[in-house]
């Protein structure tokens, strides 16, 4: 059993393995980065550190939200700090990660990040890998 953080992204619950999570913060002012891809929402200051804020909905190829998400999960990918915007944070609890059931096909954006399923009180929740949301990181590794 691993510890998972249950969060809401685009109105759906997702599970994030705690080893990927550095911290959970409220994001203040975001400075935009002109010319960057749409997923890069901008830069924000996190104490003395500059973090790159990822617009999770854009990264998943979804429509923009009406209200900006103010909470974020901080994760470190290849030495860089990223803030992944989430709508809300529900819970932290240990779960068993199980593979996606056969025949379930994730649509495009979720396909990149989906890693399996955890079950909370009978409700299946998609477990995601945050680095799949980071633009450029995968391309760089390839």
């Amino acid at each position: 059993m691993a510890l998972f953080l249950i969060a809401q992204i685009a109105g759906r619950p997702v599970a994030i393995e705690s080893s990927q999570v550095e911290s959970v913060v409220d994001i203040g002012s975001i400075i935009p980065v002109p010319r960057a891809e749409r997923q890069v929402r901008g830069l924000a200051a996190l104490r003395s550190r500059v973090v790159t804020v990822i617009d999770t909905r854009a990264a998943l190829g979804l429509e923009a939200a009406e209200v900006d998400a103010g909470r974020a999960i901080i994760t470190i990918v290849e030495g860089h700090y990223y803030a992944i915007l989430v709508d809300a944070l529900d819970d932290v609890a240990p779960f068993d990660l199980t593979p996606l059931s056969a025949g379930i096909l994730l649509d495009k954006g979720w396909l990149k990040v989906g890693r399996g399923i955890v079950e909370r009180d009978g409700e299946p929740i998609l477990a995601i890998a945050l680095d799949g949301l980071i633009p450029g990181a995968l391309a760089l590794a390839a």
Binding site: V33, P34, E37, L43, V50, T52, E78, G136
Partner: peptide, 27 residues
């Protein structure tokens, strides 16, 4: 000045990012 994330550097117009005294990040 510190290097920015790959997705930001990929734009080709930034040399890095910094946090000046204003407390707001700057490119």
């Amino acid at each position: 000045i510190k290097p920015a994330a790959p997705a930001i550097m990929a734009t080709g117009v930034y040399a890095g990012q910094t946090l000046p005294d204003s407390g707001l990040p700057m490119l």
